[in-house]
């Protein structure tokens, strides 16, 4: 039995519950696991499957087929599949595939150093780096910058910035102009749907986590 505890991770403004499945998973236990889940949660539509790397794509497809039958029976919806071996936006049995570094393991492509981007990050683009990210241009609405380290934006941050994506609570986000949709550090996120205060609008901004794990946004005086 290799079903791990449900890992909860936050991404964008939704919470997803990840069901991790290994080589020796007994599918009948998946059903009981999901029944437990329905009892404990009201996020019934945000179930995500992730698989051990020792499972090949053929068996993953078979497991997805079996689990989708269970979810239909239980009237819950399978949201997507986390799988770094399949191209992003592709599908396994009509379920969308998301590439997202698994927090328990290092992602396959390692930069582990600062990624510097000299062009605008436009809507729909997603930049992921294991390390810091520096953007010398702006980040549009609907774009995402995801770093395991810090994020520095030498322009306007209008999209989403997710720093410390593997759980580093000391990561920080810096932006010269700050009107983001969402900010997150070490899994703590906040969707910004209210007006940004005047003192933050006219200054460079630093986002960090305080000692009570709350997001603090302060103006950086230059």
């Amino acid at each position: 039995m290799v079903i791990r505890n449900n890992v909860k991770f936050t991404h964008a403004s939704f919470e997803y519950y990840v069901l991790h499945i290994g080589l020796a998973t007994d599918l009948s236990q998946v059903e009981s696991k999901l029944i437990d889940f329905i009892g404990s949660s009201n996020h019934k539509e945000n179930i995500v499957l992730s698989f051990d790397d020792d499972l090949n794509l053929e068996s993953i497809t078979k497991i997805v087929a079996a689990i989708s039958k269970i979810t239909i029976k239980l009237k819950i919806q399978l949201h997507s599949i986390l799988e770094n071996r399949v191209i992003h936006d592709d599908k396994i049995l009509n379920f969308p595939v998301i590439n997202f570094p698994k927090s328990s393991k290092k992602p396959e492509v390692l930069f582990n150093k600062t990624l510097i981007i000299n062009e605008p990050i436009r809507s729909g683009m997603r930049i992921i780096n294991d390390g810091d990210i520096v953007v010398t241009s702006f980040v549009s609405n609907g774009a995402e910058v995801i770093a395991t380290g810090n994020i520095h934006i030498y322009g306007e941050l209008k999209g989403k910035a997710i720093a410390g994506s593997a759980g580093d609570k000391s990561a920080k986000i810096f932006a010269l102009k700050f009107t983001p949709e969402l900010i997150s550090i070490g899994g703590i996120y906040r969707a910004i749907d209210t007006k940004i205060p005047e003192n933050l609008l006219n200054n460079a901004v630093m986002v960090s986590l305080d000692d009570k794990s709350r997001l603090s946004i302060v103006a950086v005086k230059i």
């Binding site: 062009e119 436009r122 809507s123 729909g124 549009s140 609405n141 609907g142 774009a143």
Partner: peptide, 13 residues
């Protein structure tokens, strides 16, 4: 404007 931004991203990548 948002959709144009998306298209500009696709053009550049």
């Amino acid at each position: 404007v948002r959709d144009s931004d998306r298209i500009l991203g696709i053009l550049s990548s």
